[in-house]
Design a protein around this nucleic acid. Sequence first.
RNA 1: GUGGCCAUAGUUCAGUUGGUUAGAACGCCAGGUUGUGGCCCUGGAGGUCGUGGGUUCAAAUCCCACUGGUCACCCCA
Length: 414
Amino acid sequence: MTYRAIKGTKDILPAETARWQHVEQTVRSVFHRYNYREIRTPVFEQTSLFARSIGELTDIVGKEMYTFADRSGDSITLRPEGTASVMRSYIQNNLAQDQPLTKVYYIGPMFRQERPQAGRLRQFHQFGAEATGSPTPETDAEIIALAIDIYRALGITQWSLQINSVGDEECRPRYKELLRAELRKVADRLSPESQKRLEQNPMRVLDSKDENDRALTAGMPLINDHLNEACAAHFGRVKELLTSYGIPFTVNGRLVRGLDYYTKTAFEITSSELGSQDALAGGGRYDLLVQELGGKPTPSVGFAAGMERLMMILEKKGFAAPEPRPRLFLAAADAPARDWVLAKTMELRSRGVAAETDLLGRSLKSQMKEADRQGAAFVLVVGAAELAAGRGVLKNLSDHSSVEVALDDLHHSV
RNA sequence: GUGGCCAUAGUUCAGUUGGUUAGAACGCCAGGUUGUGGCCCUGGAGGUCGUGGGUUCAAAUCCCACUGGUCACCCCA
């Protein structure tokens, strides 16, 4: 084997594309149900767009981006997530002018240069939605409900929703100082990773998976106990709405998302059906991002979900999407019938019938086996005798029955 | 970036303390039935045993390096 797909990339083969298409269709139909419209942005952007929106200190920007210089020397990056591009497009195309609230969704490949493992690829696929222009908790709740509805529509029941509020530009800095002061008291005993975060992003220390860190920070103040009035009211309303929508959730005061731009609501949907990488979707509110990118202050909420992890669950559940199959397979019993069979196949196709025939000049037995393998509903064997009589025997491959039909109006018989 | 495990037909795997032409199942092709699929029977094609080096009379088997895969850490979808 000479060429292989690049590490961390995968071919989605014909045997699996039916499942992908089914998921894509289901996802789209739920988005449309919620009145979100599709947006398609380029898969690469100026590097600084991602650096600025995701945050210079995040792992994504610090060590995971596919960044390269193009031929003119500009620094280009393959998108590691969708929100930054969508917001760039929102500002560039002035989408705000059409209506006060813009609801869009996207679906497509993302790229991060990490070590691959179960549920993590270098090129992976996400779908997500952004509701831009609304500060209301009703919008947060809609985004979360939308994500949950997609899993429900796909028959995925083993998920759990965790939510938190990470505060805003007024109460978060105040809380961070409080937390930092607490953390300093145990700083020398924290893991090296957490010591680094103490100054840069102390909230991430609470999110550490290190057991010792967790023990040390066990009793420390949590952000959602130190929200200002506006954030607390917003968070309360989101929880109230989720409850009224019948969506179960747990509040996790230590939940901090990996991207810098979140404010107020942050949430994560995980599945116990997955391995170590168990996050199905994540999202939250990002009221400061649009202005950070040069637009007018525009409050927004959104989420992103991984397609491969969804596929892993569906595959594990043995979910099989229906495959396209030929309606009729036309088999030639002898050489003179081949031309007629080819012409008839083309005619049926032009009439909208999924018709298939042999292109390899194979024996009749082989053609029959092929028709069976393809899952064709019917097979018609045509030879000199049938051509002379103008009639043939149409065989139903699933119930083994046969009927005699006129060759001229075959399309009425299948 | 760090660590564990793994690498033999297209696929899933067997291959004894190192020993002669490396096997099975499934899949693929052909025939059994000179014009009818699925089951069955017969036959066939298909492998530089991941790559390179070393030990040995002898290596798929032991050792080293590399490459690839996989899982986990970090982090995330």
